[in-house]
């Protein structure tokens, strides 16, 4: 279980999070929605200890993340897979080594037969062929990089998966593929997931519950139906804006296909 308890964070004079609280139950997928720059990624980085809150607490598996010692944090992180917004693949290593680095058990990491098999398995789980293993990140498309990033995050068989804008920068078709992948991993691996996104449609598809982060606070939490039915002006404003973007994208696609 992941618990964010009244966390606040500021960078110089910029208040990014102000008393944010959120619980994510085991096996649940929660999408953290919000416009750019409201602190969604900051929240995600606090869950695996890459950033510390100025105040408040983050509890994962009963452990108080900001108070963990370095080796305790490393141990906790081995149970948390993190998918970075731009992949953050190690560009000097081939895909196989990138995924291998995700194997957090040291004995398995050094066991050649195991890691080669695990790399193949992870590539299969993200719908990539085994021959991608020998390629370098620079040889991959944006969508493939995202999928390799997911493969690396699941290589260590984590209990939790954190996705930072998994569909940003992708065309609608590839975004759908990634959304489908998130659903499939939830069903096949039974992981607890937090998905940070500003894509309303995708978030409603993959998440059991959605939390809207607005002006440094959680403005609404609930199922897709509850969020859609919300009378909160900020929620409506955000949903309308996203709907407009979807319409513009859809028109753009129609024009391209028509031409």
């Amino acid at each position: 279980m992941i618990q964010l308890q009244n966390i606040s964070k500021r960078f110089l004079s910029n208040v990014v999070l102000d008393g944010v609280s959120l619980d994510v139950q085991d096996g649940e997928t929660v999408a953290l929605l919000g416009p750019s720059g409201v602190g969604k990624s900051v929240t995600l980085k606090m869950i695996n200890g890459l950033l510390k809150p100025d105040s408040g607490d983050v509890i994962v598996d009963g452990l108080h993340v900001p108070k963990l010692k370095r080796h305790e944090l490393a141990e906790l992180r081995s149970r948390i897979g993190y998918v970075f917004q731009y992949g953050a693949l190690f560009d000097s290593d081939p895909v196989a080594e990138n995924i291998r680095l995700g194997i957090t058990n040291e004995d398995q990491y050094h066991d050649e037969a195991y890691w080669k098999e695990r790399v193949k398995e992870c590539l299969r789980l993200v719908n990539l062929s085994a021959d991608v293993a020998d390629k370098y990140p620079a040889e991959l498309s944006g969508g493939m990089k995202k999928r390799v990033g997911i493969a690396r995050a699941i290589a260590g068989k984590p209990k939790y998966l954190l996705y930072d804008e998994p569909t940003s920068g992708l065309d609608p078709v590839n975004a759908d593929v990634i959304d489908g992948l998130i659903e499939r991993l939830r069903d096949e691996l039974g992981v607890t997931s937090v998905v940070v996104s500003h894509d309303v449609r995708g978030s409603f598809r993959v998440a059991d519950r959605v939390a809207l982060l607005w002006q440094a606070k959680i403005r609404a939490v609930g199922t897709a139906e509850e969020i859609l039915a919300s009378r909160d002006t900020a929620v409506q404003q955000f949903l309308e804006r996203d709907l407009e973007m979807s319409l513009i994208q859809a028109e753009g696609n129609q024009d391209r296909h028509g031409a």
Binding site: L50, F90, T104
Partner: peptide
């Protein structure tokens, strides 16, 4: 590696 979050990625994998 720092600005492309590769160092963060290593840390997030529990590696130093």
């Amino acid at each position: 590696m720092r600005v492309t979050e590769q160092i963060d990625a290593l840390e997030s994998l529990g590696r130093s």
